[in-house]
Amino acid sequence: MKVLVPVKRVIDYNVKVRVKADGSGVDLANVKMSMNPFDEIAVEEAIRLKEKGVATEVVVVSIGVKQAQETLRTALAMGADRAILIEATADVHTDIEPLAVAKLLAGVIKEEAPGLVLAGKQAIDNDMNATGQMLSALLGWSQATFVSELAIDGDKAVVTREVDGGLQTISVKMPTIVTVDLRLNEPRYASLPNIMKAKAKPLAIKTPADYGVDVAPRLTVVKTTEPAGRKAGVKVASVEELIAKLKDEAGVI
């Protein structure tokens, strides 16, 4: 079984984000970029499936600027076999929207015919949480989102989902789209020997035209602002006063 993992190049989670002066978005010039952490978890899971002999090949796909090659190389260094980059924009500030990404992925999937797509539940830059679901709709495949456990059982995937009320276990028919949550696994470090070997692994470069997809944005960003700063705190004289304030003023206990 082939496993396909879409990965996104996003602003590194350690970077202190700065909003551009004109409010059109976040400043990404000369900022450290990394693989979306949820996608890293998806790559790790795919590699583990391969190590267990369940998967035969792990193909990673990224859609965006040409620098996303670095993200793909990281996935290859972790252990993925092959990469595809769809160069959809030259501008690091242009975010390809979930529907366009889903359409492009659907195109890749038609060519690659994977048995399983493992994707991050969302990207940490725009938090859309939409691509996996849209892809499932476009393909008419089953979907399992927010997954914290995954087991492949013949033509079924048995997954545990993190839902508001707790954990839900469902069984979905393969091929399927699985979007992964934080607790599924702890991704490995890309090992130095594998980093050196990753260079020799194939990385194909495509364009949206190859899949006949229009990636023009349909959403308009009205404004981007920094979160409101924290308000000054108050000092309390005693534990009793603290409890009273938490009860009466904050209403949290």
Partner: peptide, 15 residues
Amino acid sequence: TEEQQMIVDATRAFV
């Protein structure tokens, strides 16, 4: 190079 940046990132994360 891309590899060198990855070496830096991987080693730093471990450290």
